[in-house]
Design a protein around this nucleic acid. Structure first.
Lengths: 243, 243
DNA sequence: ACAAAAGTGTTATCAGTACACCCATGC
DNA sequence: GCATGGGTGTACTGATAACACTTTTGT
C-alpha cells in the first residue's frame, strides 16, 4: 500500500447529463457532522476528492476517486485548474470538518471534471449519499467547492464549442434534438432548431442510423451516432482569429 | 518569514517575443553541476520555479518567481496545468541535481506561463544566467520541462485565437505587420497580409495613431494601439459551435 | 534609380442567421 | 381528431479566402 501525500488532493467535478430532464448536473456528497450533544455542526455538500498517493499520477488519482464514487472507469476526464489559496479551507464549518477528519488545512487541490450520463450512476446504493444537483440550482457547498464547480463549468462551456466532448454526455444513439438540448443546458442559451439541425447533419462524423427512436410518444425521431474515427480523420485545426 | 511547502512548486514558462527577430522565445536558466574531480555531471537548462510558501496563493508564487528572475511585476500570467507524475524528476541528471539541492523528489508543480517582450528583461546582469531560446529550437532541458513548455505553447496557441493576449507580447504602439508576425510566430503558419490587415483595421479596439514608425528604414509604417477598454465594452461572447 | 517593406481592392464562396409551417405518431 | 414534439427550405447578410501590383522611403 502506497503512502498518502498529505497536502495534495484531487477534487472531481462529476458532470452528469440528464437526458430526460435536459439538465446538466453535478454529483455531490453530503458533509454532515454533529456534536456530542447532537447539535448539527456541519450539514452541507462537497465534491468528491481524495489525497494523492505517492505512486500515482494526477490522472490516476482522479480516476480512482471517480471509481470509488461511482464504480465507473474510462469516462472522459479533464484536469482544468489547481486551487491553492491559503484560505480555501478556513471557513468555520470547514475547520470543524478538518479537525474531525484530521487532514491538512494547507492542502492544495488539483481539480478535474468528468463527463457522463446521470443514468450511468447507481445513485441508490451509494455509501457516500451522493446526489445529483442541477448546476443552475446548487445547494450549500463546503470549502471552495462552489468556485471549483463554476470554473469547471466555464471550462466546459469553452471546450464544448471546439471539441466534440458533448457526445460524452449522450448515449451512443441520440437524436439531433438531444444534442441541441445538451448545448442549451451547458451554455444556458437557446438555439434555432433548423439551423442547428442543418449544421449537425452536415458533419460527416454525425451518422444517421437505420433506426428511429420510438421512445416515449409522438412522432418517432431519427437516431444518429458520433464517429470519433471519422472526426479524427477529417478534422483539421482551424486557425480562425476570433477576437 | 513563511515556511516553504516542500512538495509543491510553481514552474514558470516565461514567453518573450522578440519583435526584431520575430521569434517567440522562452527564458531558461542554466543547470550546472560538476563532481569533486571536476567532471561535468549536469549541464542543461530548466524553467525557473520555486517552492510555494505556506501563506501564498499559487498566483503569488508565480509572480514572485517571475520577479526574482526578471524584476518584472504585473505581466500577463496564466496557470495552465499541474504536473505530478511520480517519475517526472527521476532522470539520471535530475536525481543528481535533486540530491545536491536537497529538495523533495516527489514534488508536484503547478505550471504558469507569462507573456512579455524580450526587451523588457535585462539579460546581461542576471544572476541565474538566464537566456532566451526560440521555442522552435529548444536546447537540452532538465526534468519534464520540455513537456511543460510544449503544453504551455499549445495553450497559448488556443488562447491567442479567442482572447486579445497577443498585445501582451507587443509594445504599446505597434504596426499591423508586427501583429501579424506575432501570430505567425506563435502558430507557425503564414497569413495573407491583405486579409489580415482588413480584419485588424476593422476592429474598433485597434486604434490608428497619429504617428508613424520611421524606425529602421524603408517606408514608414502606421502605428496602432490596442484599447482594452473598448475591447471589454464591445466584446460579447460568441457561442459558435465549431467542431 | 533601386532595394525593401508598406500598403491597397475585387471577386467568389461559404457559413451564419432569421424566420413559419407541415408531418407522423400516440392517445 | 387532436395534441405533441419532429422535421423541413429560403433568402439575406457578413466573413473568409484567393490573388498581384503600387507606394513610399532610405541609401
Amino acid at each position: 500500500m502506497s503512502k498518502k501525500i498529505q497536502n495534495i488532493s484531487v477534487d472531481c467535478v462529476v458532470f452528469g447529463y440528464d437526458i430526460k430532464l435536459k439538465t446538466l448536473n453535478v454529483l455531490l456528497i453530503k458533509r454532515y457532522l454533529e456534536s456530542k450533544k447532537k447539535k448539527v455542526l456541519v450539514d452541507d455538500n462537497v465534491l468528491t476528492g481524495y489525497h494523492m498517493y505517492e505512486d500515482e499520477t494526477l490522472d490516476d488519482t482522479a480516476s480512482r476517486v471517480l471509481k470509488e464514487l461511482t464504480g465507473l472507469t474510462g469516462q472522459y476526464k479533464q484536469q482544468f485548474k489547481a486551487f491553492g489559496n491559503p484560505d480555501r479551507l478556513t471557513g468555520k464549518k470547514d475547520m470543524l470538518w478538518i479537525k474531525n477528519e484530521q487532514f491538512n488545512q494547507r492542502t492544495i487541490t488539483i481539480a478535474y471534471y468528468f463527463l457522463l450520463k446521470t443514468d450511468d450512476v447507481d445513485i441508490q446504493n451509494n455509501q457516500h449519499q451522493a446526489k445529483w444537483y442541477s448546476v443552475s440550482q446548487l445547494p450549500q457547498l463546503g470549502f471552495d467547492h462552489e468556485q471549483i464547480i463554476m470554473e469547471a463549468l466555464d471550462d466546459l462551456k469553452v471546450k464544448c464549442l471546439s471539441e466534440p466532448i458533448i457526445f460524452e454526455l449522450l448515449p451512443n444513439k441520440f437524436t439531433i434534438n438531444e444534442v441541441q438540448d445538451v448545448y442549451q443546458s451547458i451554455l444556458s442559451i437557446e438555439l434555432d432548431n433548423r439551423n442547428f439541425r442543418k449544421k449537425m447533419i452536415n458533419k460527416k462524423y454525425i451518422i444517421a442510423l437505420d433506426e428511429k427512436k420510438t421512445g416515449v410518444s409522438k412522432k418517432p425521431s431519427q437516431l444518429y451516432m458520433f464517429s470519433k474515427d471519422i472526426y479524427l480523420k477529417l478534422h483539421r485545426k482551424t486557425y480562425l482569429i476570433n477576437l
